[in-house]
Simulated assay, not measured.
Amino acid sequence: MAVPRERLIRLLRSQWVNGTRLHYCFMDGPAPQRDAVRAAFAEWKDLGIGLEFAEVAEPGEAEVRIAFDQSDGSWSYIGRDVLQIQVGEPTMNFGWDLTTEYGRSTALHEIGHTLGMPHEHQNPFAGIVWDEEKVYAYFGGPPNGWSRQQTHHNVLRKIDPSEVEGSTWDPDSVMEYWFPAGLIREPARFQAGLNPPGGLSAADREWVSTFYPPLDTSAPLLEPFASRPLSLAPGEQADFRIEPPASRSYQVATFGTADTVLVVFEDVDGDMRHVASDDDSGEDRNATVTVTLLHGRRYVVRARLYWAGASGQTAVMYW
Score class of each variant (00 low, 15 high):
Asp35Trp: 07
Leu115Trp: 05
Leu200Glu: 02
Gly312Glu: 11
Gly112Ile: 08
Glu120Val: 01
Arg5Phe: 01
Glu120Lys: 01
Ala31Arg: 13
Leu230Ala: 02
Gln191Arg: 15
Gly79Glu: 07
Phe255Leu: 15
Ile66Gly: 07
Ile159Ser: 04
Ala126Phe: 02
Ser173Glu: 09
Asn18Gly: 11
His23Pro: 06
Asp239Tyr: 00
Pro30His: 13
Gly166Leu: 02
Pro180Gly: 08
Arg304Ile: 08
Gln15His: 13
Ala310Val: 14
Phe265Gln: 12
Glu236Ala: 08
Gly103Ser: 13
Val289Ala: 10
Glu236Phe: 06
Arg297His: 15
Ser247Glu: 12
Thr100Asn: 08
His119Cys: 15
Lys158Met: 12
Gly182Asn: 03
Ala246Pro: 00
Met92Pro: 03
Ala57Cys: 07
Pro59Phe: 02
Ala303Asn: 14
Ala2Cys: 02
Leu200Tyr: 05
Asn195Glu: 14
Met92Gln: 14
Pro224Thr: 09
Gly141Lys: 10
Val155Thr: 06
Phe265Asp: 13
Met272Ile: 03
Glu283Lys: 15
Phe240Pro: 08
Leu221Glu: 15
Trp96Ala: 15
Glu236Leu: 01
Gly48Cys: 14
Tyr299Ser: 10
Ser201Phe: 02
Ala287Leu: 02
Ile66Glu: 01
Gly193Ala: 04
Leu230Cys: 10
Ala188Pro: 01
His152Trp: 12
His119Tyr: 15
Phe94Ser: 14
His119Gly: 06
Ala31Leu: 11
Ser227Pro: 05
His153Asn: 10
Ile49Cys: 11
Asp267Phe: 00
Trp130Val: 08
Asn195Lys: 12
Leu108Val: 03
Thr292Glu: 11
Gly141Phe: 06
Ser173Trp: 08
Ala310Leu: 15
Gly19Phe: 12
Glu243Ala: 14
Gly50Lys: 10
Arg38Thr: 09
Asp239Cys: 01
Thr151Val: 14
Glu55Phe: 00
Thr91Asn: 05
Leu11Pro: 02
Arg297Asn: 09
Met92Lys: 08
Trp169Met: 09
Glu283Trp: 11
Pro214Gln: 09
Gly282Lys: 10
Ala287Trp: 05
Ala276Lys: 08
Arg285Ile: 09
Phe68Ala: 13
Arg302Met: 04
Ala308Glu: 01
Leu8Ala: 00
Val316His: 07
Val289Gln: 09
Met27Tyr: 07
Ala107Leu: 04
Ala203His: 12
Ile85Thr: 10
Gln150Trp: 05
Tyr102Pro: 00
Glu6Phe: 03
Arg38Gln: 14
Lys134Leu: 15
Leu51Ala: 03
Ala36Pro: 11
Glu101Asn: 01
Leu293Arg: 09
Pro90Asn: 07
Glu132Tyr: 04
Gly29Phe: 00
